[in-house]
Simulated scan of single mutants.
Amino acid sequence: MPKTITEQHVRKIAQMIRNWSIEHALDWNAVCIGAQGILGWDNPPTRQALDKKIAIKVSYKTKKGHLKLEKQRLVDMPRPRSTLDAMKKITRLQAENDELKAELARMAEMANRLIYNATLAGLTRERLMAPLPTIREPQSRKA
């Protein structure tokens, strides 16, 4: 009886490809070896067998393109001139991140307070979440 690749196998293999790490090279040989574990076969499937499945083929091409763009983005990223410059930038970004987190926490606390007070005043959630009215431009009068 020939071995078959079911739709469930195809979905799992496609998911494996979508979750592929950038640290490992994505090629058909690696996909075949990874698919072997999913399929539970003694030998890995052939590239041609996997390439015939459209979901696997599309996942492979999409992920390959994404990895290529990610690699190019990393190559194009400006490098700091020294370790000291990199440390200064990291420290500045961490401070900025902490400030933004604190601001977000203050905004969330204010939103909770407004919702609580509005509820005490008798406003319903639907009334609170109603869209803002649109402001129309005044039409010019014809002379």
Rank of each mutant, 00 (worst) to 15 (best):
R11H: 11
I13F: 04
Q15S: 14
Q15V: 10
I17K: 07
W20F: 07
W20Q: 09
W20Y: 07
S21Q: 09
I22W: 00
I22L: 00
E23Q: 10
H24N: 13
L26H: 07
L26K: 08
W28P: 09
V31H: 04
C32V: 06
C32F: 02
C32E: 11
I33V: 15
I33C: 11
I33F: 13
I33E: 15
A35I: 08
Q36S: 11
G37E: 06
G37Q: 06
G37K: 03
I38R: 07
L39A: 02
L39H: 01
G40D: 03
G40Y: 01
W41S: 10
D42A: 10
D42C: 01
D42P: 04
N43G: 03
N43I: 13
P44G: 03
P45F: 02
P45A: 03
P45N: 03
T46M: 07
T46F: 03
R47M: 13
R47N: 14
Q48D: 10
Q48E: 11
Q48V: 07
Q48M: 08
L50Y: 03
D51I: 01
D51K: 12
D51S: 09
D51H: 11
A55P: 12
A55K: 15
I56Y: 07
K57M: 14
K57N: 15
V58R: 12
V58C: 05
V58D: 13
S59L: 06
K61Y: 10
